[in-house]
Lab assay of single mutants.
Amino acid sequence: MLDDRARMEAAKKEKVEQILAEFQLQEEDLKKVMRRMQKEMDRGLRLETHEEASVKMLPTYVRSTPEGSEVGDFLSLDLGGTNFRVMLVKVGEGEEGQWSVKTKHQMYSIPEDAMTGTAEMLFDYISECISDFLDKHQMKHKKLPLGFTFSFPVRHEDIDKGILLNWTKGFKASGAEGNNVVGLLRDAIKRRGDFEMDVVAMVNDTVATMISCYYEDHQCEVGMIVGTGCNACYMEEMQNVELVEGDEGRMCVNTEWGAFGDSGELDEFLLEYDRLVDESSANPGQQLYEKLIGGKYMGELVRLVLLRLVDENLLFHGEASEQLRTRGAFETRFVSQVESDTGDRKQIYNILSTLGLRPSTTDCDIVRRACESVSTRAAHMCSAGLAGVINRMRESRSEDVMRITVGVDGSVYKLHPSFKERFHASVRRLTPSCEITFIESEEGSGRGAALVSAVACKKACMLGQ
């Protein structure tokens, strides 16, 4: 009897593995994704193909990295998701002549009506938060230079001027797309009239992360975010950046690689679950690469896999709870928690219980395998993109072996128990001629924006502006 049951459990697990095998990517698959990513990057950089390229390769006008001589107080704003952060950054000489960066910050959550109302409502709310922060720190009387981390696709015309191309991540505030974001912020500050600010720089969160990590390690020339969304930036040779005049030196390019796949480059790798996630998203047909990796989508992918296993009578005796059938019910943090389970399955059992399920031991094991399959594919897909960037940098610099540091931020990278190990191992397999160091950014977005502002202020002083 026991043997029969054991055989049935083994057969069930084997069927589960057959279904989950769809998520496995072979090294040849990853090399294919990497080569296609490089081709799209090239198209994004070139003037004649930029418009139709899915990977936009947006110039950021960040050319210099901090040298350690900029000092002063800077205000930093960070808008990239449902939370908005205001930070005071003091850049100065530390002990023994070292450079020191001290920060104080406060988080504000953005109400739904500000995210989806008008641009005026959104930026009025942001300036209200700045006003509140300055009151708390008794700094209303000071006109501070301000660095703005704005983590949406922007076409820069200068370091302090950028046109919002399109909202992502659930934002829909009308009247912002096609307009200068810094102008919208300046107008809102003017409307309030109770404080003055000098907006000197606007950067993407990947750029802010790279600059913040450069402060720790001067070989950091790539910034990457794996959180709600997924994106990367890197220092490109100016001669390859056709959208900006000049051939000397390097400029940081914001790849906006989340949109890779929007022209069909990933079609052969998309599964039924991916198509369902895409169809029910706020932007169907867009940001397809990001939807395979980002935390906004990972939990939902797992939920759809679990429903398939229920329908195949391989999980929960073929019956799903009402909660499990509800879109968004299986949160991405559950994926991390399930994979963090120590082996007694308590954590998995508790999560499934909150979803109205009474799982068996085998159910718990199957749910864990589903989570591992989805998150491992995410790590491997992400590795193909980064390997594409790094191999490109090595080739354009004609280096036999390139040493490089990548600064990384984002909740999936930082909080998932195995993502970074799987990701690092896969990147290294795909970049055999590179020695890569990964560092995690601390308060990256805010500190990085302030350091970019410090560079901009120093330049302005040198130019006598």
Rank of each mutant, 00 (worst) to 15 (best):
D3S: 11
D3Q: 04
D4C: 06
E9N: 11
A11P: 04
K13V: 11
K13I: 14
I19R: 13
I19W: 15
I19S: 04
A21N: 00
F23W: 06
F23C: 02
Q24I: 12
Q24R: 14
L25A: 07
E27T: 05
E28L: 05
K32A: 06
M34I: 02
M34H: 03
Q38H: 14
D42T: 07
R43V: 08
R43K: 15
R46E: 07
L47W: 03
E48N: 08
E51N: 02
E51K: 10
S54P: 08
V55E: 00
K56I: 11
K56G: 11
M57D: 00
M57N: 00
T60D: 02
T60Y: 02
R63T: 10
S64W: 13
T65S: 15
P66K: 03
G68I: 11
S69Y: 14
S69I: 12
E70M: 04
L75P: 02
G80Q: 04
T82F: 15
F84P: 05
F84R: 04
R85K: 13
R85C: 05
M87R: 04
M87C: 11
L88I: 04
V91G: 08
G92V: 11
G94Y: 10
Q98W: 06
W99K: 12
K102Q: 15
T103Q: 05
T103Y: 07
K104R: 08
K104G: 07
H105A: 05
Q106K: 12
Q106P: 01
M107D: 15
S109Q: 12
E112P: 08
D113H: 15
D113S: 13
A114T: 10
M115V: 09
T116K: 14
T118N: 10
A119Q: 14
A119R: 10
A119W: 05
E120F: 06
L122R: 04
E128V: 10
C129P: 04
C129Y: 05
C129I: 05
D132I: 13
D132W: 06
F133G: 00
L134K: 03
L134G: 02
H137K: 12
H137R: 07
K140E: 04
H141K: 13
K143I: 08
L144K: 00
L146C: 12
V154Q: 06
R155V: 11
D158V: 10
D158W: 12
D158C: 11
D160R: 10
L164H: 14
W167Y: 15
T168K: 06
T168M: 13
T168V: 08
F171E: 11
F171L: 13
K172F: 13
S174N: 13
G175D: 12
G175S: 13
E177F: 05
N179Y: 15
N179I: 14
N179A: 13
N180S: 12
L185A: 04
R186E: 13
D187F: 00
A188L: 02
R191M: 14
R192P: 04
F195G: 12
F195M: 12
M197I: 08
D198I: 00
V203D: 09
T206R: 02
T206Y: 01
A208E: 05
A208Y: 02
T209A: 12
M210W: 01
C213F: 02
Y215F: 08
E216C: 03
E216L: 04
Q219W: 07
C220W: 02
C220L: 01
E221N: 12
V222Q: 02
V222W: 00
V222S: 01
G227H: 07
G229C: 05
C230R: 02
C230W: 06
N231Y: 09
N231E: 09
C233D: 02
C233S: 07
M235F: 07
E236P: 01
V244G: 06
D247K: 03
M251C: 12
M251W: 02
C252S: 02
V253C: 05
N254A: 08
T255M: 15
E256S: 14
E256R: 07
W257I: 14
G261L: 03
D262V: 12
D262S: 14
S263M: 15
E268S: 14
F269Y: 03
F269E: 03
F269T: 04
F269V: 11
L270I: 13
L271V: 05
E272P: 13
D274Q: 00
D274P: 02
D274V: 00
L276R: 13
L276V: 12
E279I: 14
E279H: 13
A282H: 02
A282W: 07
N283V: 07
P284T: 08
G285P: 02
Q286C: 15
Q286T: 14
Q286W: 07
Y289K: 05
K291F: 00
K291Q: 07
K296R: 14
M298D: 11
M298P: 01
L301W: 00
V302Y: 00
V302R: 02
R303I: 01
L306E: 01
L306S: 06
L306Y: 01
L306V: 10
L307E: 05
R308A: 09
L309F: 11
V310N: 09
V310K: 04
E312S: 12
N313A: 09
L315T: 02
F316M: 09
H317L: 09
H317R: 08
H317I: 15
H317V: 09
E319T: 09
E319N: 14
E319H: 15
T326M: 10
G328R: 10
G328C: 06
A329Y: 04
A329S: 06
F330D: 00
S336I: 08
E339Y: 03
S340K: 05
S340H: 06
D341G: 04
D341M: 08
Q347T: 15
I348S: 05
Y349N: 07
Y349F: 12
N350S: 06
L352G: 02
T354P: 04
L357T: 09
P359N: 02
S360G: 06
S360V: 08
C364R: 01
R368S: 11
R368E: 02
R368M: 14
R369V: 07
R369K: 08
C371W: 01
E372G: 10
S375C: 12
A379C: 12
C382R: 02
A384S: 07
G385R: 03
L386D: 01
A387G: 06
A387W: 00
V389W: 01
V389K: 00
N391G: 09
N391F: 07
R392G: 01
E395H: 08
S396R: 15
R397K: 11
D400P: 08
M402V: 08
I404S: 04
V406S: 00
V406I: 14
V406M: 01
G407F: 03
D409W: 05
D409Y: 05
G410Y: 05
S411I: 04
V412C: 07
V412G: 05
K414S: 04
H416S: 08
P417Q: 07
S418C: 13
F419W: 13
E421H: 11
F423T: 04
R429L: 14
T431Y: 00
P432C: 05
E435W: 07
I436Q: 00
F438K: 03
E440F: 05
G448V: 08
A450C: 09
V452A: 10
S453N: 07
V455K: 08
A456H: 08
A456K: 14
K459Y: 11
M462S: 13
G464V: 06
